[in-house]
């Protein structure tokens, strides 16, 4: 267990400038994705009327009080300010307050009966940042904790999803007719949303061949089951790429776009710091004191 934590948080290793730059880019994208959700929901919430599913904190107050033109926008403005304060290291609790505001937007947006999963990964990465900058005063420790937590939850999330499938349905989960049924459901969804559903070539293949449908589900289940390999540095790029492939498969077959999952997997799966290191070396040849010494963008 001790070795597992050391592996996950990688706390024993020195931190290079390229890793530091990578972290700031990761942090920037987490903030950007969070704000994308928060602001897009702020314009959707005023359209809602009744509450049929009180989620989270909505069990303790009437969430329909948020269904107006002003409150969701105020929440979005507040979240933006607190995220900016934390990003520029002016207020260490900013990310946590923004996450709570994010939660309020979520329980209002998804009070209509649907439990959405698209935003979970973004919120978990924001939670990692929030806890890291509250509990660790040293920047390096905070960075390692935030990344380690995100990596842990990604691995855990996928593997537990596969185990849940095996518990809820059993090995027969991979049987191709199940994909036909889901595809039938999604065809109604797309028709209902856009007014037309035209199956693409992958969807035609799924409808025509039970074997193809079964193989696709086998791939999806195995990809998720081995999600825990994301915890280990050596296997992370391979399982990351496999999971990205799985999400593209879901997009093509089911018209469900888990775009933020793809982006975050793309960011965390590969050793981008090596690429950054390459550019730093080239950059250093031309300039010794450029943007790399900027203390606000790259706090140490």
């Amino acid at each position: 267990m001790q070795r597992f934590f050391i592996h996950l948080f990688d706390w024993n290793r020195e931190e290079s400038l390229s890793e530091l730059i990578f972290f700031r880019m990761y942090e920037f994208f987490v903030c950007l994705f969070s704000l994308q959700y928060i602001w897009s929901w702020s314009t959707y919430i005023p359209k809602l009327q009744g509450v049929v599913l009180p989620l989270g904190l909505a069990q303790y107050f009437d969430v329909s009080t948020l269904f107006n033109d002003v409150t969701p926008v105020l929440i979005a403005i507040g979240a933006t300010v607190f995220i900016a304060l934390s990003f520029f290291r002016r207020f260490s609790w900013g990310y946590l307050i923004a996450l709570i505001l994010f939660h309020f937007q979520y329980i209002a947006r998804f009070s209509q009966g649907e439990i959405s999963h698209g935003s979970n990964i973004v919120a978990m990465t924001l939670l990692g940042l929030a806890l890291a900058f509250i509990f660790f005063k040293q920047e390096k420790e905070a960075r390692r904790f935030a990344l380690g937590l995100a990596i842990f939850y990604i691995g855990l999330g996928y593997t537990s999803a596969a185990i849940c499938k095996l518990i809820a349905t059993g090995p027969a989960w991979v049987s191709g007719e199940h994909l036909w049924l889901w595809l039938g459901e999604r065809s109604v969804d797309v028709l209902s949303q856009t007014g037309a559903f035209v199956p693409n070539s992958l969807q035609k293949l799924i409808f025509d061949s039970k074997l193809a449908a079964t193989l696709i589900l086998v791939f999806g289940l195995l990809a998720e089951l081995f999600g825990f390999l994301f915890w280990f540095k050596k296997t992370r790029p391979f399982i990351g790429l496999t999971l990205i492939g799985m999400h593209f498969g879901i997009l093509m077959s089911m018209n469900i776009n888990f775009d933020k999952y793809i982006y975050i997997l793309f960011i965390l799966s590969f050793p981008w710091e090596r690429l950054i290191e390459f550019f730093i070396r080239r950059f250093k040849a031309n300039s010794r004191d450029g943007f790399l010494s900027n203390k606000i963008l790259i706090p140490r």
């Binding site: 989620l55 979970n120 919120a123 849940c164 499938k165 349905t169």
Partner: peptide, 18 residues
């Protein structure tokens, strides 16, 4: 909270097939 307190959740998508 019945298995769901966002962003925590015990409900994976597509767990019950058929």
């Amino acid at each position: 909270h019945l298995g769901e307190f966002w962003p925590f959740s015990v409900y994976p998508m597509f767990s019950q097939a058929g």
